[in-house]
Design a protein around this nucleic acid. Structure first.
Lengths: 198, 198
DNA sequence: GTCTATACCGTGATAGAC
DNA sequence: GTCTATCACGGTATAGAC
């Protein structure tokens, strides 16, 4: 046993600790001292694994962004009527949000003080734009009511979806209640947006 | 002219500057140095007006909380069918949110690291609970669909409403587009929650 | 009411031993 | 891979002159 003794940190396992603390105290409110105490190792040991605080943030939001953009590449987001694609993306976003909860939470709270944060904000806007285009298509196909501004509807829809990170906590038993949550969101939000008679 | 020369800061005018910077950089990301530069006076001059950074936060979130709780004391929130009271509170919340935008934005972003922040979070939960009770009444009166969890519906509804602070900016002309926004929110969110046939 | 100067501590990050 | 010790800097806050 060459590498066997106890569990040593890797950038990956350290990230899990960091993301948890970032979400508890906020990124700016978290010091390397906080992280070292939470991880049970010294500050300098953290620097052995990662270049610094910002790298931990970058790794975390990258993972969240990969999950979100991955949705847009799935078949369900690219085929069928636009209204169905909107519904699919909404449902899947809720799922990614619950499965990647800590990373997405961090992404949604980024302010823009550092380069990494500004990059994250930019990519978020890009995702929102892609979804907004989907809704636009659904209006053009006559499935979404045309009397509501598309940009506004997108913002409100994803405002509702994103707010889930503020209270959702996965069940210890691992029950798949993320699906049921997605179902409720689709009913509450999308039903109000459908064109009359559709 | 005894007090005439230029414009000297008061706790009130200083608060306006502080809230703006807090919202731009985040509360934790804002230093007294940032505030002093934004206000155009030195750090120590700020301490002449307020006890410190946290007092500025307390004043700001207090104003937001006063606005929100004030809604619950209005006649429209206390009379009529519960569904109408829910609609009234939703509409008025959007209005308070747009008129007190900077203060409410700050309130919705507090994390809980200081005593003031924890107090703010507690009062927010209290407000949410009051609204949730309203929705519960509306279900009991048969106006809201009973197949959706009340707590969940409240959270999603106010998740949508609260997300407005992330993008809404008042128009320079001062047009009352807050009313129109409230109308859209009520249609999108509440229409999906109504009991079938009502 | 505002300033300069400063106290004092916590910050992110590094050096080098083990 | 982890540690102790340390650095340079920026953080909140105060003292006291004007």
């Amino acid at each position: 046993m060459t590498t066997a003794k106890r569990d040593a940190y890797t950038p990956e396992t350290l990230l899990a600790v960091a993301v948890r603390v970032f979400n508890e105290r906020g990124y700016d409110g978290t010091s390397m001292e906080h992280l070292s105490r939470a991880a049970g190792i010294s500050k300098s040991s953290i620097y052995h694994h990662v270049a610094g605080k910002e790298e931990l943030l970058r790794r975390a939001v990258s993972r969240a962004l990969d999950g979100l953009f991955g949705i847009l590449d799935e078949p369900g987001a690219a085929t069928g009527r636009a209204i169905e694609r909107v519904e699919y993306v909404t449902r899947r976003t809720v799922e990614v949000l619950t499965t990647e909860l800590p990373h997405v939470t961090l992404l949604l709270r980024v302010r823009g003080n550092t380069r990494t944060e500004r990059w994250a904000l930019e990519r978020r806007r890009e995702f929102d734009q892609r979804v907004s285009d989907l809704l636009k298509d659904a209006v053009a196909e006559g499935d979404l009511r045309a009397d509501v501004d598309i940009r506004l509807a997108t913002r409100l829809l994803f405002g509702m979806v994103n707010s889930i990170v503020e209270w959702y906590r996965p069940q210890p038993g691992g029950s798949p209640d993320g699906d049921q949550l997605a179902e409720t969101v689709v009913r509450l939000a999308l039903d109000g947006m459908r064109a009359p008679g559709r």
